[in-house]
Design a protein around this nucleic acid. Structure first.
Length: 919
RNA sequence: GGGCGCUUAGCUCAGUUGGUUAGAGCGCUUCGUUUACACCGAAGAAGUCAGGGGUUCGAGUCCCUUAGCGCCCA
């Protein structure tokens, strides 16, 4: 059978889709131990992740690429470790975001508003929109290689999940943990809905501070002519229009300036309404004028003060932040327009003192950025105290662990200061609040749609207009996606889930709410580990934004460099909880890495193909007689790598693990072992062993790397497996799975004791080879020139003699012109000397220049080099002698001290030899 | 106001029980097309690990402190 030709460079374009289809159609993304199947074994450990559901109509951005890469890595690792692995995919209906998108589209294409269309029709249209675009994001996630079980895909508005939402709401209601009432909430005038505290962002902005007079009404004691005295309290405000809603003026009880006014009556400018002057310790005597206007309907602090003093609460803005009937003649004006006009009128009335620029924090909507208006509004709330306590304890007592740990503190701080959660939104797209009202205004709250009022039996029921905050349903995600409230096989086996992986920016929004919901509804923690990743920024650490034009589109990046390159870039060099800077240069470098793997693979496969059929060799698995130094070295380094990678995975140090695998493959395996193998394979008796080592090491590399770069590793591994199975060493692959995705992840082994000395020996060979190559570079000796060399290697003589062929091959020496001599012998004339330090001594190398060189240039250059090396040796000797003369010798571990002693000897010997060469 | 993070080579960043001469990618210099790879190879230059103090035989790593930058909460 003819061997297939592998292309010169790795072609991810022809690979990724094909490989993904093989995985998906082959059922590899499904848990191998499925609780819905008859052969289910409850003793097999599951590993479960619920995907952070992206907005159903969203488009893939770099943040998605980040979490998909990390979660797929976690999943693939555990799958290869033998866990029954389930990654539940899905998407979020994303109330506001989706509704806005559809509204915008309707306006653009049909010039129709949602109000004109009506609620029912609008929701229909939104479902159509969802059907049309809902698959886009999940297909884009597939391109990244995500190994989700797509048959278990969920959507927050699905029937099942809607039932979960209903169940959750009713349970909370029945426990008295949900209530409805007028409260001061954050109102978004543009969206015309309430938003939660978390959805408000505060930014420092330049504003004006307006100073004006709050005139004091004559109390009849002064005997003046008019109702107004000339007395006033100066007050400062950022938002003068809220004067229309003032219900008091507050001063500090100890404030000497204003004490006399306490209990008297002030007159609201223009409106003429009478309001009391009150005393409250909340008022800061230092800030502004030291007196505070109280607008309980539009300010959270004022609201609190009003409650303490039993003040009336006036709303003076309507839903679009226009002044309402309480604003007198300003009714109908926009809040900013009213600000201007009222101020002008006050100025005319002589009530204005001054205005000055002022830096203040402005509350803005997280979505859209418009200024949020605190307003009194009838909303639904969740009593958070008991939920929060449970959520706090779960992390405090270690049932849930957060990676990195420092976020636990952030979590505690937030959980200890929770406020009731406003869960109603004045939107149409979402889970409608399952509360019905009869004409008597009795509330009926049930799991099934009611036909009559639970109180009076009236059949005239209307459902509450509001929908639930999107986060209410996503808070149920880890269990609602598994079938809850039903005790489905999936729910029983896969819940609680394992890791929750997401960005730290939604720790409060989502993670905290899942914990509270999970504990409340299922009585269990929803996951035992939270892994938080950072934000992805551009290569200079700036936030990506369309206006800045520095957005990296993962789809384009994948088109240009492949999904593996993007994944590897995101995974390596990022650390948990820290933001990551990503530039295309890095992606390009990792594309090159994929190509490197491809080409190493080609080399290994060619080597396998070149084997001639022969009887099967004996003694698989363990290190045997036939192992060369290079074989032992690469094997020992590989085992060390496996141990390191295992440790890094346990510690969530994925980036570090990826980096080490990269370094091993490129710097150890490709740069050195493959080159050594070329030399070894020229000996017929070493050939088989060499190919076996190439094969086994490369196989393990691909397995280690697979969670990072699944496509290239799967593709190459497939070729590798095919080549092995058709070769004399087919037994190496006899128990391999058909695809790498379910192959066993390498298990770490304890060192056997021989490793360190083999590594040291090989490293000496590397040093010698480097030294000779360096000499070539310095002397301008062509790499083609075969050199004659004399070694003076002392106790390392036997080692070098053993490795002559390999050294000769790696540094192009003339095997027939290599010789050894004792160090004490007279050094060879006209040879260029070099000294390489070993662990405990040194090796001298004398290279015979191939032709007559310009000695004046080259000798001085050589001398310069030797002198520099001597200087290094001398300073190291000094350093080490100091070190060994200090307390270090007594207190440091003996092995470490010995190591430093050896090193000192090495430098001493090296220095001596260099000196003799310089003479 | 409280809390957290960052500051390591020209650029972007790794560096987790404290222990070789502090690493990588990109960039830079020189050389090179030897049957895996020019998406490559070889050799090389480049860092007082932000400043100061402390603990320790030993600190980029632990503690304190100062400064700059960034984020979160109020």
């Amino acid at each position: 059978m003819t061997k297939q030709e592998l292309s010169k460079a790795y072609d991810f374009k022809s690979t990724e889709q094909r490989i993904y289809a093989m995985w998906e159609t082959g059922g590899y993304f499904k848990p191998h131990n499925d609780p819905n199947k008859p052969d289910f074994d409850p003793n097999v450990k599951p590993f479960t992740i619920s995907i952070p559901p992206p907005n159903v109509t969203g488009e893939l951005h770099i943040g998605h690429a980040m979490f998909v890469s990390i979660e797929d890595l976690m999943i693939r690792y555990h799958r290869m470790k033998g866990f029954s692995t389930l990654w539940v995919p899905g998407s979020d209906h994303a109330g506001i975001a989706t509704q806005l998108m559809v509204e915008r589209d309707l306006l653009k294409t049909e010039e129709i508003t949602r109000e004109e269309l009506g609620r029912e029709k609008f929701i229909e249209r939104t479902w159509e929109w969802k059907k049309k675009y809902g698959g886009m994001i999940t297909n884009q996630i597939r391109r990244l290689g995500a190994s989700c079980d797509w048959d278990r895909e969920r959507f927050t508005l699905d029937e099942g999940l809607s039932r979960a939402v209903r169940e959750a709401f009713v349970r909370l209601y029945e426990k008295g943990l949900i209530y409805r009432g007028p409260r001061l909430i954050n109102w978004s005038p543009g969206l015309k809905t309430a938003v939660s505290d978390l959805e408000v962002e505060y930014s420092e902005e330049n504003a004006n501070l307006y100073y004006f007079k709050y005139m004091i009404k004559d109390d009849g004691k002064g005997g003046s002519r008019s109702a107004l005295t000339e007395e006033f309290i100066p007050v400062a405000t950022i938002r003068p229009e809220t004067i229309l809603g003032d219900t008091a003026v507050a001063v500090h009880p100890e404030d000497e300036r204003y004490k006399k006014f306490i209990g008297r009556t002030a007159i609201v400018p223009i409106l003429g309404r009478e309001i009391p002057v009150i005393a409250d310790e909340y008022v800061s005597m230092e800030f502004g004028t030291g007196a505070l206007k109280i607008t309980p309907g539009h300010d959270a602090n004022d609201y609190a003060i009003a409650h303490r003093h039993n003040l009336p609460i006036i709303s003076m803005l309507d839903q679009s932040a226009k002044v309402n009937e309480n604003g007198g003649k300003y009714q109908g004006q926009d809040r900013f327009e009213a600000r201007k006009n009222l101020w002008a009128e006050m100025k005319a009335a002589g009530l204005v003192i001054k205005e000055e620029p002022y830096l203040t924090t402005i509350p803005r909507s997280q979505r859209g950025g418009e200024i949020i208006e605190p307003m009194i509004s009838e909303q639904w709330f969740v009593k958070i105290e008991s939920l929060g306590k449970a959520g706090l304890d779960a992390v405090k007592d270690g049932r849930i662990k957060i990676v990195p740990e420092r976020f636990e503190k952030v979590y505690f701080n937030w959980m200890e200061n929770l406020k009731d959660w406003c869960i109603s939104r004045q939107l149409w797209w979402g889970h409608r609040i399952p509360v019905w009202y009869c004409p008597e205004n009795h509330m009926t709250v049930t799991r099934e749609d009611p036909t009559q009022c639970a109180t009076c039996g009236s059949q005239e029921l209307t459902q509450d207009d509001d929908v639930l905050d999107t986060w209410f349903s996503s808070g149920l995600w880890p269990f609602s996606t598994l079938g809850w409230p039903d005790e489905t096989p999936d729910y029983k086996y896969f819940y609680p889930t394992s890791y929750m992986e997401t960005g730290y920016d939604i720790l409060f929004f989502w993670v905290a709410r899942m914990i509270m919901s999970g504990l409340e509804y299922t009585g269990e923690i929803p996951f035992h580990t939270i892994y938080l990743h950072g934000l992805v920024r551009d290569e200079h650490g700036h936030k990506m934004s369309k206006t800045k034009g520095n957005v990296i589109d993962p789809l384009i990046v994948m088109d240009d460099f492949g999904a593996d390159a993007l994944r590897f870039t995101l995974l390596v060099g990022s650390t948990p909880g820290n933001d990551t800077n990503v530039g295309l240069k890095k992606v390009e470098a990792n594309r090159n890495f994929a190509n490197k793997i491809w080409n190493v693979g080609k080399f290994v496969i060619n080597a396998i193909d070149s084997l001639t059929p022969s009887p099967l060799p004996e003694g698989e698995g363990q290190r045997g007689e036939g192992w060369s130094l290079a074989d032992s070295w690469i094997w020992a380094k590989l085992q060390r790598l496996i141990r390191d990678v295992e440790r890094q995975f346990q510690n969530f140090q994925y980036g570090q693990a990826g980096q080490q695998i990269y370094d091993f493959i490129w710097s150890d395996f490709a740069d050195w072992y493959v080159e050594a193998a070329k030399s070894q394979m020229q000996n017929e008796e070493q050939r088989l062993q060499t190919v076996k080592t190439l094969t086994r090491v490369f196989d393990i590399c691909l397995r280690l790397l697979h969670p990072f770069t699944p496509f290239i590793t799967e593709e190459v591994w497939g070729h590798l497996r095919g080549a092995i199975l058709e070769s004399p060493i087919s037994n190496l692959a006899k128990d391999w799975s058909p695809m790498l995705i379910t192959a066993k992840f390498p298990e770490p082994r304890e060192p056997e004791g021989w490793e360190e000395s083999k590594i040291a020996d090989f490293e000496l060979i590397q040093e010698i080879v480097r030294s000779i190559r360096n000499l070539r570079a310095e002397k301008n000796i062509s790499p083609k020139e075969r050199l004659a060399v004399i070694f003076s290697a002392g106790e390392k003589t036997e080692l070098l003699k053993d490795q002559l062929q390999m050294m000769a091959s790696l540094s192009n020496l003339d095997l027939s012109l290599l010789s050894f001599q004792e160090s004490s012998q007279e050094k060879p004339a006209d040879y260029e000397p070099r000294v390489v330090r070993t662990a405990t001594g040194s090796v001298e190398i004398y290279v015979k220049p191939p032709t007559i060189l310009d000695m004046s240039v080259n000798i001085s250059a050589g001398k310069f080099r030797l002198e520099a090396e001597l200087n290094i040796a001398v300073s190291q000797i000094e350093r080490l002698e100091n070190l060994l003369g200090s307390d270090f010798a007594n207190k440091a571990p003996a092995a470490l001290v010995q190591k430093e002693r050896d090193k000192l000897n090495g430098y001493k010997e090296t220095a001596e030899k260099i000196k003799s060469q310089l003479m």
